[in-house]
């Protein structure tokens, strides 16, 4: 008799636990559906609801992780990092910890706080727990460098994973395509407009050269004709101005060209690259 009553009670308790788990699971699925539909604000609300009612903390890590991902989807990286850090604290097992930690790094990459991302990657590399994840660490290090426009270091990081890694090849190609800002400036000191021509701005370079030639002629002509004041005025206000302008332009054009080259690769990464992205 006692055994039977005990059985009934146990069954009821079991049934209630199952029931609780069912509606938590339904809630988790509901929040996930909102997340998949990119309704991140609402998804966060529902994950938070789940966090409150999940008294057994069954979904705690997953909900916090998903809140972090939702904030990331809304480009709210500070909040995303906060929730990934919460998830890291509530993680069970090294895989969950590693996933949360890398999400913090990925958010830092997107936020362009590269120094912080690299610092966290260094810490992760030193941690013996994650020795098996070294390729992933180098992968994100490569991304951090690419976002910081340091393609040479990015290529080195990807080469550590695999010398023919597709991103290593892309980073190398981008680095090689870039022009030298210093060279552009130096040749403009020697021949005004040359730096602009070197960066592909031929018309601008030729016009700069023409202005310098004309202003130089006027200045020298004024001095040779004993019009010293005119010589100083034209030299200072015209020649020197355009000479300095040609050097400034050479630098600016070189920087802009390098940004264009980097952006072409970054556009590829964002729109066409099939691998995992920050």
């Amino acid at each position: 008799m006692k055994a039977r009553a005990l059985f009934i009670l146990s069954f009821m308790l079991f049934a209630f636990v199952i029931q609780a788990q069912d509606y938590l699971k339904l809630q988790f699925n509901y929040a996930n559906d909102l997340f998949k539909a990119e309704q991140y604000y609402d998804a966060i609300t529902e994950y938070k609801r789940l966090l409150l009612f999940d008294s057994t903390n069954t979904y705690r890590y997953q909900a916090e992780y998903k809140i972090g991902e939702s904030y990331k989807g809304g480009a709210k990286y500070d909040d995303a990092i906060k929730y990934f850090s919460h998830a890291e604290k509530d993680a069970q097992g090294k895989d969950e910890i590693f996933a949360a930690k890398t999400q913090v790094i990925r958010s830092n990459i997107l936020r362009r706080t590269t120094d912080r991302a690299l610092q966290l990657l260094d810490e992760l590399e030193k941690d013996s727990t994650f020795r098996g994840e070294i390729d992933t660490i180098y992968y994100w290090r490569g991304w951090a460098y690419m976002f910081a426009d340091n393609w040479k270091s990015a290529a080195r990081a990807f080469a550590t994973i695999n010398p023919s890694h597709p991103l290593k090849l892309l980073a190398d190609q981008t680095d090689r395509a870039k022009v030298s800002v210093t060279f552009a400036k130096v040749i403009s000191y020697i021949l005004p407009g040359a730096g602009s021509i070197y960066t592909g701005k031929i018309l601008s370079g030729l016009m700069s050269l023409a202005w310098n030639a004309a202003a130089g002629y006027w200045t020298i002509n004024a001095f040779t004709s004993n019009r010293i004041f005119d010589g100083f005025v034209v030299g200072e206000l015209v020649w020197f101005r355009f000479y300095r302008g040609s050097i400034q332009n050479a630098e600016e054009f070189a920087v802009q060209k390098n940004i264009d080259i980097a952006n072409k690769s970054l556009r590829y990464l964002q729109n066409e690259y099939k691998g995992i992205k920050p």
């Binding site: 009934i8 009821m12 049934a15 209630f16 029931q19 069912d22 509606y23 339904l26 809630q27 509901y30 609801r49 009612f53």
Partner: peptide, 19 residues
């Protein structure tokens, strides 16, 4: 009698239940 509410719960719509 005790199981009834549980079975009933399963039939109720999700939004009207618990959370």
């Amino acid at each position: 009698i005790f199981l009834m509410p549980i079975l009933n719960f399963a039939q109720t719509s999700y939004n009207n239940s618990g959370l």
